[in-house]
């Protein structure tokens, strides 16, 4: 298993958490982290792994930090 730090931002925190350590099987993709948190691809704005932009198909490594921001587009 891998230990991953998951950080949520803005309304993604509501009913979930701000930051959590979570365990995932080896070779887990970012997509699974979002699915487990019931965050849809449509809601997703910025996805970062270790402060670098990532896509949903990026494979995670033990100790990675995943940051998830919602899509914000109002004015």
């Amino acid at each position: 298993m891998m230990n991953i730090t998951v950080k949520l931002f803005a309304n993604f925190r509501v009913g979930r958490f701000k930051e959590a350590q979570r365990n995932y099987p080896k070779q887990t993709l970012c997509r699974l982290v979002l699915q487990e948190l019931y965050i849809t691809e449509e809601e997703l704005g910025v996805l970062m792994v270790n402060s670098r932009h990532a896509n949903l198909d990026q494979e995670l490594k033990d100790g990675d930090t995943v940051s998830i921001f919602p899509l914000v587009g109002g004015g």
Binding site: A10, L71, V72
Partner: peptide, 28 residues
């Protein structure tokens, strides 16, 4: 929630931010 960035010519910052989301509406 809100955010700001300044894009200088050639930076393509908005494309990085929104490029895959062209026809979508945000959480607003």
């Amino acid at each position: 929630y809100g955010h700001v960035t300044t894009q200088m010519p050639g930076d393509k910052s908005l494309h990085t931010l929104y490029g895959r989301k062209c026809h979508q509406k945000g959480v607003e």
